[in-house]
Design a protein around this nucleic acid. Sequence first.
DNA 1: AGCACGCCGACT
DNA 2: GTCGGCGTGCTC
Length: 798
Amino acid sequence: MIARTIVDVPAAQTDRLFDYIIPDHLEEIVRPGMRIVVPFGPRLIQGFVIEVVQESDVQKLKSIEEVLDPTPVLTDELLTLGEWLAEQTICFRISAYQAMLPAALKTAVTKELHLLTELNELHPYLQPLFKEKRTILWKDAVDALAGHLKHVRNALDQGQLAVHYVVKEKGKKKTEKWIKLADSADETKVKENAHKQRELLLYLKQQDKALRSQEVLSATKTTRANLKALIDKHLVVEWEQETYRDPLQGVEYKQTPALPLTDEQQQVFTPISESVLNNQSETFLLHGVTGSGKTEIYLQTIEQVLNQGKEAIMLVPEISLTPQIVARFKARFGDEVAVMHSGLSTGEKYDEWRRIHRSEVKVVVGARSAVFAPFSKLGLIIMDEEHEMSYKQEDMPRYHTKEVAIKRANYHQCPVILGSATPSLESYARAKKGVYTLLSLKHRVHNRPMPTVEIVDMREELRAGNRSMFSTSLMEALKTRLERKEQSVLFLNRRGYSTFVMCRDCGYVPQCEHCDISLTYHRSNHSLKCHYCGHEEAMPSVCPECEGEHIRFFGTGTQKVEEELTRVLPEARVIRMDVDTTRTKGAHQKLLDAFGHGEADILLGTQMIAKGLDFPNITLVGVLAADAMLHIPDFRSGERTFQLLEQVSGRAGRHEQPGEVLLQSYTPDHYSIQLVTEHNYEGFFDYEMAQRRTAEYPPYRFMALITVSDPDLPNVIEKSQKIADYLKRTMSKETVVLGPVVSPIARIKDRYRYQCMIKYKNEPRVIEALQQILRHYLRDTTQGNLQISLDMHPYFFM
DNA sequence: AGCACGCCGACT
DNA sequence: GTCGGCGTGCTC
């Protein structure tokens, strides 16, 4: 039998199947989707079995070295999905499969040197290496010998040394020690005066069941030595048992029953429920205003899926995967829920994955990668906040979670729910065309009103002589809230500003010497750092250009806002939430809890407070710079602005008291800001769609981004021009090929960057053409320094 | 991606 | 003559 295998070498030349003989004793074991270790050239590497066949065309076959899994880690569905993903995103198949599995399952291969003879027979030069052990790491030998590797070669030739390749799994299964009384316990073996041992024994007798060793020791206040004595006397047996790390250990969740649905919710629930019951692969777009109770619909739909004996995936953007949302799912579904997000350690992720893999849970709540959860009876996929950009993976494979979700739902014949208060134009357009089924929740639950939104023209403020970052209206509103003991949220949109450094005398801005990008000021060690390559330098005290002393960091950071806030409103208690204050584990939740308990009057924060925040006492939301990202040169900047403003507005007045929103802006007439005052998504959609149509942007067109880079500038220019020419020749007349132009970031890590963009509509051969380009420049990319990176349906144009 | 093989210059 | 530099090509 032959195992057709994808090997763990992410390179163009190895992106195909390699055949291996399945040894007789493994024939009953090896199945598609398992990880195996195979000889590849002179070394050992990991691979995935894709299929098992009878024969191979290859003459000289090698055998599988080792099987890593007792059961397949990839189902047939996921194997096929990986193939599709690799094709759609133009990446290596191995990269697609790796993306579907927790990092713990990725193996590392280490090369080792093993001593076969006696130490003194070895060349004196090599002897120190093997003084302590007979096996050393190859890497250590290279480091120690630096250029004198010929001695190793000689020793290898003479058979004194041997090279071993060791494949190690990264993830470890956690084990716990358990104990119980031995069947035939002869108590007379315990001496009279061994009180502690007797105590321990008595405790075990009373409990009369298997217990965790650790728990018994702490309950009886005895030490491991006492236990060890009993084990040695065969009075107690101890064994290791596999267990899971519990990221939510110690947290108790009260079971909560389903809430009654409002009429509007019921109208939305019915069609989804029918789709679930009829096993229909249908995509719903649930457009529900903030506070309309989308989550309750998700919960009740999932319940129905579970009642059918099926499983559900609940996707949320990483940023809103807070303990609050997790708690809500745990409270409804208890132990049937697994959680997957970046905050978990490698081991924790591995354990959650295993609980899914073994069908011990029925629901997974997770970010992007949870879409690959290895369920076999999938009954529903929900994608909350479907417009969020974090659903697009930015490194290989550059997939969009929505496309994967729909593909999987298709396979399992189950529905997908895309939920949002501000759907992406792509999704809403598809819903209007009837590709997705549009469902709307236009009202907040209990008929609570939407918050009133007012725009403050900051130009007028400036004209009136107010140079601070708080307008008069915002100050007044904040003061009122303080008097009424209500809470406020201040939102600072930092994107578009960053904490760059500038000389006030000559305008000089320090740039990274390897990347054409401004350096960012880091307060912690008073240094300047490059976000792209990590280059770091000291903050200059005088301007390197004009030697002026007025060089300082710019940009309105949250710290600066906080400083000014405490100056103008000294009586206000402020909680600041940004990357700095939420760096440590659990800090995020702590700050939110504190705010929820009324320990502060004002919550000041960045992006991260735009979502999921639900506190009854918030009656004011202030946005300091509503237009901050409007001027980013990206065709989606208007859409993002509207979405963000609508989301933050939604934080106000979610309960009894009505909410008020103040948007400070220098461009108050822009439609992305104006339409928020009416909470008019439809109006925004129509306006923005008209713009997209004229400019031929998505959703009217698809896009692909090709970035070419090389340390040699002329080569980049030449190759990107040739690529653009080729595309212009090959693509149909309707397709627009833009570029080549210099990338927005012209240089990263000393590599010059140019890019081309394709805007196309009906072009069945785009992927083929792009693959052809990669093939054509294979020499330049593998042997030269050229890099060509492809992004289908890009979200970032850097 | 590694790693070996092979061809060329530099040096014992 | 041999050692080691790097370009070229293969890995079931």
